[in-house]
């Protein structure tokens, strides 16, 4: 019996449940407050947050929906990694440290928090998060406030509260980071990025190899 439940739990699609929940709430609040935010710079941009406590990333993509006089945007939340404009890699633990007034740049130097890609995108998302100022707890409670989803509510709140706070910190610290620190800080992520690039090339080479093998099968002997 227990193995059945473990199997089902494994296939509970936790990441999809979380991203679906976040997406519903963000867009609900967005409908009410989008008039107060200029989306021009964020259209089609993606911010990815990789939290070490979650074994999947959270990617937020801003997409324009209706063509109208008013800004109508939609935020998609996925676990896609194929394309992103900026990635923040951190942990909920570090986000708590941030709350105790540690500097973003300090945490970056200590390899506890990492920003790769276009930091301006992170700044823009930070402004958006500030404008929306979502009350996650009450929002989540209205949507999924029953007992079986209690744990999700807790985690969702934890993740998003911390995100909101980091957003403010990033906004405050990013300019400083851009001006003073970016050139001197060699982060773990830059090495990882390089490794990823190597892995990508390796994968592409393999694809190419398979393709060449496929084509040469068709060559006349």
């Amino acid at each position: 019996m227990s193995s059945l439940f473990t199997q089902i739990a494994k296939q509970f699609m936790f990441s999809q449940t979380l991203t679906a929940g976040l997406e519903i709430i963000i867009n609900k609040v967005l409908t009410l407050k989008s008039a107060f935010f200029s989306f021009d710079k964020l259209a089609h941009k993606t911010l990815t947050i990789a939290l070490s406590e979650l074994d999947f990333p959270l990617s937020f993509t801003v997409v324009p929906t209706k063509e109208s006089r008013f800004n109508t945007m939609n935020v998609l939340v996925t676990s896609l990694t194929a394309h992103t404009d900026c990635t923040i890699t951190t942990s909920i633990k570090t986000l708590i440290e941030l709350q105790t007034q540690k500097k973003l740049t300090e945490l970056i130097k200590q390899d506890k928090l990492d920003v790769t890609g276009d930091i301006k995108v992170a700044q823009q998302f930070a402004s958006l998060a500030e404008t929306l100022n979502i009350d996650w707890q009450s929002e989540l409670a209205t949507h999924i406030g029953d007992i079986p989803t209690h744990k999700l509510t807790q985690l969702g709140k934890k993740v998003s509260d911390k995100f909101h706070f980091t957003a403010q910190q990033i906004k405050a610290d990013a300019s400083e980071y851009l001006v003073h620190e970016q050139r001197v800080v060699v982060t773990k992520s830059q090495i990882e990025l390089f490794n990823q690039a190597v892995a990508d090339i390796d994968a592409q080479t393999q694809t190419l190899e398979a393709r060449i093998a496929r084509l040469s099968e068709h060559l006349p002997q």
Partner: peptide, 16 residues
Amino acid sequence: HRLWKRFTIDASGVRP
């Protein structure tokens, strides 16, 4: 079914 479809999107590796 919405979660199954989300799973499909996440697994697709789609990009701009």
